[in-house]
Amino acid sequence: MILLFVADPLPTFKTAKDSSFAMMREAARRGHEIWACEVQDLAWRSGGRVTAHGAKRLALSAAALASQAGEKVEPWYELAATQDLALADVDAVLMRKDPPFDSEFFYATHLLQQAEREGARVFNRPSALREHPEKLALMEFAEHAPPTLVTRSAAAIRAFHAEQRDIILKPLDGMGGMGIFRVTADGLNLGSIIETLNKGGAQSVMVQRFLPEIAEGDKRVLLIAGAPVPYSLARIPQGGEVRGNLAAGGKGVAMPLTETEREVAKAVGPVLAARGLLLVGLDLIGGRITEINVTSPTCFQEITAQTGFDVAAMFVDALER
């Protein structure tokens, strides 16, 4: 197959951790042709087709092909060719641009949807990316989530705190643990935190009951074609932090899925897969969904390195099917 990855700049890839690199490596090992471009390379002109201008064909190095999960490789590719590439002319387009989901990401999903009309196959599906914002998507599965409030109202947040007593507040557009606050029963700094996050009522905020099971980790459960990877990556807070995100210093520990986590995956996975979400990252604390990640889910390499289960192989199997 010919695969086009729409991703972040190739020099920014951290080969010891990057899930997109793991996908490329596994696909290249199977003989698939690997191309890459960035979001800003996508363009459409009337009378033509959506095209990746200056798309790069990658020849992965022998060291990259021989590497194992968690290993750093330099250099990991050579540039085999550069050309304009119509998205409909490749077998699969993999949208792997990292968050945030900003205006340019939104516009890119429309370009990718036009490419679909022209015959391209895009994973994850562009319309599904738009329809499943990563924090708000849990509203559909509220029975599997902690008590949650989404509002601009400072009064509503105060009332929710009075009811729940121990809460987490976070912006809807945050990533990597940015902008997350915990307020306990004493309500210390609640007013200041509300002002910071909702900007005088101009921005919506997500508020959730604090889950003490965070001490056991914020678990990333990967769903591939609706089926769960049998291991999660528990991101365990370190040094007094309330955030388990790896970007915030959390420690990643792979663990077998619990029965509750399997039940949640069974309830959510097939629904999302049917909408064109080939790869989903559920974030679970104490078996409760706190986020549903669809833009560029990661943790492939950490799980594989610690357990031996080849997540990238499971993904490419699904892609080939």
Rank of each mutant, 00 (worst) to 15 (best):
N124F: 02
D310Y: 06
R25W: 11
A27Y: 11
D310L: 07
T196V: 01
N198T: 13
A81S: 14
A28E: 05
L169E: 06
S192G: 10
S232N: 14
D89Y: 09
A162M: 03
L85Q: 03
D18S: 09
L211P: 03
S127H: 06
T304I: 08
N189F: 15
L149A: 02
H53R: 15
I292D: 03
G287Y: 07
R262I: 00
M139A: 15
D89A: 10
E302F: 09
V229P: 00
Q40N: 05
M255P: 00
M1G: 12
V253N: 01
A137W: 02
A202Y: 05
Q113L: 08
V253P: 00
P212M: 02
K170H: 05
P256D: 09
D89N: 01
L223N: 09
L284S: 12
A267T: 13
R130F: 02
P147F: 01
A86I: 09
A66L: 03
Q164N: 04
A81K: 14
V294S: 04
V50T: 08
L272N: 10
I157T: 09
F160L: 10
R262K: 12
Q113S: 14
I236L: 10
L197K: 02
I180Y: 06
V271T: 10
E291A: 10
A234Y: 09
F309N: 04
A115I: 07
P99S: 02
V229K: 08
P100I: 01
D173C: 01
A27L: 12
Q164A: 15
Q238M: 12
T260A: 15
E140T: 14
A265P: 12
H161W: 11
D186M: 06
R262G: 14
R121N: 06
G70M: 04
G70V: 01
T290W: 09
L246G: 07
